[in-house]
Write a protein that binds this DNA or RNA. Structure first.
Lengths: 118, 118
DNA sequence: CGATAGCACAACTACATCGTTGTTTGCTAC
DNA sequence: GTAGCAAACAACGATGTAGTTGTGCTATCG
């Protein structure tokens, strides 16, 4: 049993849109920062405000996006809202992206140092 | 030797931006379709035009973005440009995203069928 | 019960980018 | 050298969204 579900090849249009939407949600620095801040432990909006140095409204807005996409979960505790990572897979995604970035940079580096136009 | 490079924890700002940018590049349905069309074999712009049913200019534009980000490579053959996947890791990314989408949908499904507010 | 704190929602402005239209460049063929 | 095709480039209008400002709602406290 494979963990990767092996997507169909000619990707059906709805799946293409769904995949792109999720990537787009992750394509915002502020949201990446929020997820990174939640990596160690769940946190309240206030704590995330301090961690990201953003306004309460902005933090709340992005958390709403992450919540609706199922990447984080929310639990209300009295007067506070505590958010937590709901899908640990995002960190794997980030690490894979970092790997890709490294490959790209190494490639550029090789071109600059080795394969000059002579 | 781990394949995942284990990114630093408080993600430094430039890395956050780089990660977000790559996600943002993948967050466009047209680009996902182009990558999917290139999955089997390299292709010319014309072939990709037909595969995605988009205009030549639009295809060329998105290919330019993918090229600059290092996700595809270009080789000129006479009058044609042949593009190919440069980083096979993107397909792993897509599969992981699909896994996350499935988890989210299952979760919603469980809420709807089982855990009503009772 | 009135006041305050934590959070979410709505309206708005600024900016980025998608897709189109028009044009230019580079190559091949006659 | 002239004609024609493939691909890239440039400018433009339309659309989407990030971040701010302003406000409403719920729970806690005195």
């Amino acid at each position: 049993m494979k963990t990767t579900a092996t997507v169909p090849h000619p990707l059906p249009a709805p799946l293409v849109d769904a995949i792109a939407e999720r990537f787009r949600i992750l394509g915002e620095p502020m949201r990446i920062r929020l997820l990174d801040a939640l990596r160690d432990a769940p946190a309240t909006v206030q704590e995330l405000e301090r961690a990201t140095e953003a306004s309460q409204q902005n933090v709340s807005k992005h958390l709403g996006v992450l919540l609706r996409s199922g990447l984080v979960s929310r639990s209300k505790e009295g007067n506070f809202s505590r958010y937590a990572i709901a899908d640990e897979g995002v960190f794997e995604l980030c690490e894979q992206v970092c790997g890709g970035l490294r490959r790209h940079l190494d490639e550029l580096d090789a071109v600059l140092s080795g394969g000059g136009s002579r």
